[in-house]
């Protein structure tokens, strides 16, 4: 695939190098784009299956590895079903990166609270890569993660590594009690009751199902977070990625170019912004 790099409608070819099974319904696809795809943590790409369509995903890999992009995908629809059937060697297309990414420039000297739900931990992992790579990128990192059951915990093999790090706290919870689980039980919002963080010097970033985002935002407001310090990943209705198709318009924003992570202060009064 060789194309005019200024025509962002046209995908760049990418070879599928590896497929990592994360959970029964989540897989990570390791891709090598024909030219390095440089992105900032939280920016997203459109992953193209020729003839079938494309879908937006925020890479779960490190922004410092633009030659090797990892995309972690929950099987949920037409494109993602087809993706889950692919084997290494397949050829795909990538467009992007699009969006603004996480507000990482605000993080140095501040604590960062990362709240994930289900496959929502995937975009947040690119942020974690960023935060882990540079001790100056933030003060402390608190990761609070929830999944429905032990089998659905994404990136489970990496939790020990995260939790061992200086400055990093990691906690996981599952929704309902389970024989294979002796950790915290309850929705992810229950983890937010006893945080060792000062809302005045902390930024909260959350990604997960929309209903979870809504309750996380409300919970954070309850425990004293200003809306200006809450960022929600609206990884949802993006199509062209460039603010041209109109699809992801909410109030004065296009989620694709003004997000996908929007400051809660900007959307809390927009009807239906959070479903």
């Amino acid at each position: 695939m060789s194309n005019d790099a200024t025509n962002h409608f046209v995908p760049v070819a990418a070879e599928l190098l590896d497929v990592i099974v994360e959970t029964p319904t989540i897989r990570t696809f390791v891709l090598r784009p024909a030219r390095p795809l440089r992105f900032r943590a939280g920016q997203f790409v459109q992953l193209e299956l020729p003839g079938l369509g494309e879908a937006p995903f925020t890479p779960s890999s490190s922004p410092q590895e633009p030659e090797r992009i990892e995309i972690t995908v929950l099987r949920t629809g037409l494109v993602t079903d087809a993706l889950h059937r692919l084997e290494p060697g397949a050829r795909l297309g990538l467009r992007g990166p699009f969006g603004r990414g996480y507000p990482v420039r605000r993080f140095p000297g501040q604590d960062v609270l990362v709240v994930g739900g289900g496959v929502g931990l995937a975009p947040l992992r690119s942020l974690l890569h960023h935060l882990f790579a540079d001790p100056q990128s933030a003060r402390r990192v608190s990761i609070q993660y929830g999944a429905r059951s032990p089998a659905e915990l994404c990136f489970r093999r990496q939790y020990d590594d995260w939790a061992r790090r200086d400055r990093v706290t990691f906690r996981a919870t599952i929704d309902r009690p389970h024989d294979d689980w002796d950790g915290h039980v309850g929705l992810v919002t229950t983890l937010l009751d006893d945080l060792d963080l000062d809302p005045a010097t902390t930024y909260a970033v959350s990604c997960g199902p929309e209903v979870m985002l809504k309750f996380v935002a409300w919970k954070l407001r309850d425990i004293g977070f200003p809306a200006e310090r809450i960022y929600l990943s609206m990884n949802r209705s993006m199509s062209c990625g460039m603010g041209l198709c109109g699809r992801c318009n909410i109030g004065p924003y296009y989620l694709c170019k003004d997000g996908p992570d929007l400051c809660y202060a900007d959307i809390e009064d927009i009807p239906y912004a959070l479903g």
Binding site: F9, P50, S239, C245, G246, N249
Partner: peptide, 26 residues
């Protein structure tokens, strides 16, 4: 009004695909 959607089409051989953009509406 500029809202659009995209559609992908293939031929029967599966060797050729196209991406089309068409007007859509809110």
């Amino acid at each position: 009004c500029f809202c659009t959607t995209v559609e992908d089409t293939t031929d029967l051989t599966g060797q050729h695909a196209e991406r089309w953009r068409r007007w859509d509406s809110c």
